[in-house]
């Protein structure tokens, strides 16, 4: 964090480059055509917008794993599709009466970026809504539809932590990703090595010996990272 404080203009431009590229892409998509005129006006407008409506720069980790990003995207699509159908059938099923729960999930990483992305990803999937956030302790409070037993609560918690792991592996910093990998290795060892490649990508099975996984991992503070970015501009 500290070396980034005294930033030269080039560093700041480099740091804002993803945002500028995104804004130009948005402009081109709106025009539906790629011409000299649209590109030039897009670049000029992007610079103007980022100068006039100045926001504190999003602290990107500077790391992006495309393969993990692809896996994350595919998993999100599958999750959203299945959960949408499930919630829709619950809505039209006349014998269904909802029982809900508000669950506190303590995330492993304290970075704002990962926390925001996780909250967004959790809220996009139907059936769970982030109701409140404790930024200091990195706790997401989510309201889950259709939880009947404690087992459902634990499954939702595991799902959230799995989503966080996938996001960290895709866009988190090296340290965060390394700690997630170490944790996964530890979990796989614990499981006994019988089902090595069986559950891909944090897809925890539902066998009974894993019910307490969420609890173990919540109490386990050894792998927890310190807050690695404390930009202090958040308003939560």
């Amino acid at each position: 964090m500290s070396p980034a404080r005294d930033i030269s203009p080039w560093r700041s431009l480099w740091r804002q480059l993803p945002l500028l590229v995104l804004l130009v892409a948005l402009w081109l998509f709106l025009w539906d055509e790629v011409t000299v005129m649209s590109v030039v006006t897009g670049v000029l407008l992007a610079i103007l917008v980022t100068r006039v409506f100045y926001l504190p720069p999003v602290l990107l980790s500077g790391r992006f794993n495309p393969w993990r990003g692809l896996l994350l995207g595919l998993r999100m699509i599958v999750d959203v599709a299945t959960a949408s159908i499930e919630v829709a059938f619950r809505a039209v099923n006349p014998r269904y009466t909802p029982t809900n729960a508000i669950i506190a999930v303590e995330l492993h990483t304290h970075s704002d970026l990962v926390m925001t992305l996780t909250a967004e990803a959790i809220t996009v999937v139907p059936g769970t809504v982030v109701v409140d956030v404790d930024r200091e302790r990195a706790v997401l409070y989510l309201h889950a539809l259709g939880t009947v037993t404690d087992e459902d609560v634990e499954r939702t918690r595991r799902h959230v932590l799995g989503t966080e792991e996938r996001i960290v592996l895709a866009v988190g910093t090296h340290e965060e990703a390394e700690s997630v990998r170490a944790e996964r290795r530890a979990r796989r060892m614990q499981r006994g090595g019988g089902v090595h490649g069986g559950a891909p990508d944090g897809l925890t099975g539902l066998s009974s010996d894993e019910v307490s996984t969420g609890d173990i991992r919540r109490r386990d503070g050894a792998h927890r990272l310190d807050r690695n970015e404390d930009s202090g501009e958040g308003s939560r």
Binding site: P98, T99, N100, A101, I102, I103, A104, V131, D132, D134, V139, Y141, T147, V148, T149, D150, V153
Partner: peptide, 11 residues
Amino acid sequence: DLLIDDELADD
């Protein structure tokens, strides 16, 4: 009465 668990209220 619909909530089986409210950990936010607990906290």
